[in-house]
Write a protein that binds this DNA or RNA. Structure first.
Lengths: 142, 142
DNA sequence: AAAATAGTGTTACAATATATCATAACGAGA
DNA sequence: TCTCGTTATGATATATTGTAACACTATTTT
């Protein structure tokens, strides 16, 4: 968690962008939850002095964090999760438990390679890949 | 297109479910468009005698078709596309052009295998995999 | 300090999806 | 064939997710 913040600061410095208080808070919140969080789950947690933030506030912060590769969006859940891989590759590979909701980020070069190979066959130039595998995690199988 | 309908009928017969007129019409519409269609794009096309259908009508039909493996949902686009592979595997692998919007369904056992191997390492029991790769198709690269 | 850029607050709204309850169609067994 | 349980559809309302647009503030650059 602390190391995640350190990495975030480093990444932002390298990219010459600012990790403002709002962005940092959203990053902390997303990281603290080990399950993916929806934008509207985060929203009330951002409220200072009892006044809730408005949707654009959280979406801007999330868009920023996603752009920097610090957070991933899980399209099938409309939710966001902290990126746990340190390498700066722009891939998003997740095992998603449909029971407990946990999101396990995996790093599988074999998948990435197989995708690159297939895309090549179609002359397709890839931007980013998003792999979302739903199923049951080990804990939830009994 | 006709062969797609034939397959649909066969699949429904095997699964002992009904391909009702609404479901068949939605399937046709999704198939006719070679780009993914949003539910609200389909909605007005369902209108008989000038009266538009209500959202649940199209969502029910789409849910049914997805459950039968005849249509895929592209989560990153909130859209639906006809399934073009005949084998009855429950995987969803797409190359999505961000310029022209085309969705190319690929069948890559190497990817599936790499995923199975990784899931195994985590003791994760997979239901279905969804791979959405955004980028530029060959036509749109110039 | 002035100008330019980037970030935030706020309001309103668009787009996507579902809950709920009533009605209709169908299919199996008496 | 009738009725009863199941499945499908109609209809209304509402929930959820995501953006546009504009004013204002903070930060950086010149």
């Amino acid at each position: 968690m602390d190391s995640a913040l350190q990495r975030a600061r480093r990444v932002c410095e390298e990219n010459k962008v600012r990790l403002t208080p709002i962005r940092e808070k959203v990053l902390r919140l997303v990281w603290q939850s080990h399950n993916p969080l929806g934008a509207y789950d985060i929203l009330p947690m951002l409220s200072e002095n009892g006044k809730a933030a408005a949707p654009p506030t959280v979406y801007r912060a999330l868009d920023f964090l996603v752009a920097q590769g610090l957070v991933h969006r899980i399209a099938s859940l409309n939710a966001f999760v902290g990126c746990s891989v340190s390498s700066d590759q722009h891939v998003s590979q997740f095992l998603l438990c449909r029971k407990c909701g946990v999101a396990i980020e995996i790093e599988a070069p074999a998948i990435t390679q197989a995708i690159a190979h297939n895309a090549d066959q179609y002359g397709f130039q890839t931007d980013n890949e998003s792999i979302e595998i739903s199923g049951l995690c080990q804990c939830c199988q009994s």
